[in-house]
Amino acid sequence: MQPVISITNFSKSFGKNIAVKNLSLDVEKGELFGLIGPDGAGKTTTIRTLVTLISPDSGELSVSGLNVSKSVREIRSITGYMPQRFSLYPDLSVSQNLNFFANLFEVPKKEMAERRKRLFKFSKLEPFSERLAGQLSGGMKQKLALSCTLIHNPVVLILDEPTTGVDPVSRSEFWEILQELKKEGVTILVSTPYMDEALLCDRIAIMHEGSLLALGRPEKITGLMHNHIYKITGHNLVLQSNRIAQIPGIISVQSFGDSLHLTFPPGFSSEDIRLKLYDLLGQQLNIERIAPSLEDVFIGLIEGKIGHGN
């Protein structure tokens, strides 16, 4: 079956800045696809090109089989796009915003009531329908923006960092809504800098400085890591991380809150490491081997310490 979103050898520069280079990926129908990476990875450029707001320098991009350079208006009418910044009218009420976008997309008048009801059901915004959009909380704003994006029943939903700057509870609510939409058959492309959200996607693409580092199911990507990760916890460990990094054979030290993640190649045992740490710091530490998280993989990928792969 033809992929809903298809990107082949896409490159885009702004002046001397290379935003995306040679990106290729496909999103299948009904998939929840995550574009993961830090700021400046090229996520927004890729997304804006897909929704026809900017044009590619080279490469082929298509949405639902329509070329982004040729079928601008067709793509715009079947796609729902939610920009990174809150882009609704703060001085219009929830209802007024919804109606405005319904009219722009020419949603049939007869279907309006039914669609509003459906959107209100998941957004739970009905009690606030007369409130001005500017006076909603961050989480509610995002839900309203999503509702306006969905008012014309798009077949593809493209979201640019929808949960950045939103509180954790609203974030998980938002992802529940995305899962609901996926069940209804909507193809979703979502970008996020949060690794925990990446785990909720069917497949992810990890981007860094305009390039694709890894592509696949989240579990598969964590499996890329053949090095071993050891988590150590103890008092004031973070301050010691520079000294720990001197241990012969160690690949990297990353701090995660109070604990440190040490990466070693296969062949070291927990006991070896415990002894080495005791020699170095003179204290007994709690040490356990853990499965690599996406964050470990991501850092490994960026530092080039694990092989690129698919």
Partner: peptide, 13 residues
Amino acid sequence: ETGTLEQILVSPV
């Protein structure tokens, strides 16, 4: 400036 144009532009307007 407020970004609302970006949201209107992706409609068929």
